[in-house]
Amino acid sequence: MEKKVCGAKTRKGSPCQKAPLKNGRCRLHGGKSTGPKDKEKHRQRLKGNKNAIVTGEYETISFDTLLDDEKELYNMIPEDIDRQVKGRYKILEIRTRRLMQRYSQELEKNKPDFRMINRLEEALTRIDARANELIREMRELSTNETNEDNGSLGALVDILVEVRNKRLGS
């Protein structure tokens, strides 16, 4: 009598020799996943799932998912330039706050995980760099706006620049 085996292809390329279950594959090779049957129900179950978050640096944040105190903070963050840049800056501020909360929670533990603390510090450093980039971008946008507006002060600056260029050219 021939011994039944799983037969699934292993990493080495040979067939798996473990005993199969009812579906013909062993417990390790249970067959191809067909995914969730009801995609909408699956999407609803995953909404708000924070199980995979480690530091939170890459966490997806939208206004709908903000806590009440975060919404208050969002509205308090000053706006000066283009709406999209302002929104990204606000989200970075909230992301920084969440990281700082995780950081302090980790420090309050009896046995803090210093690898996690290190990861959080690295994430904060990267977020800070992104915030600085956005601030530079906002400054550039504000300089472009003042040049485009060319109000009376802008006109005066243009005249002075023109006079200076004529003086240096002659």
Rank of each mutant, 00 (worst) to 15 (best):
Y89I: 03
S152A: 15
P20D: 04
G56V: 03
K71S: 03
G13K: 02
G35R: 02
R139V: 12
D68T: 07
K22T: 02
A155D: 09
L120F: 06
A129F: 13
R25H: 15
E106L: 00
Y89T: 03
T60L: 15
L92E: 10
K18I: 00
Q84S: 02
R88I: 01
Q84L: 01
L92F: 13
L92K: 11
V163W: 14
I117C: 09
Q101A: 14
L21N: 11
E148S: 03
A155L: 08
N132R: 13
R164D: 05
A19L: 08
D149R: 11
A52G: 13
Q17K: 10
E148R: 09
M138T: 01
E72F: 07
R45I: 14
K166Q: 01
E137W: 10
C26L: 10
D82C: 02
L46F: 05
R130D: 14
M1R: 14
G13Y: 03
T60I: 15
P20Q: 01
K32S: 05
S62D: 09
L141G: 06
N165I: 08
I94F: 04
R98F: 05
S62K: 10
K9A: 04
R119M: 14
R139T: 11
G169K: 06
D158G: 04
E79Y: 03
L168K: 06
R45Q: 06
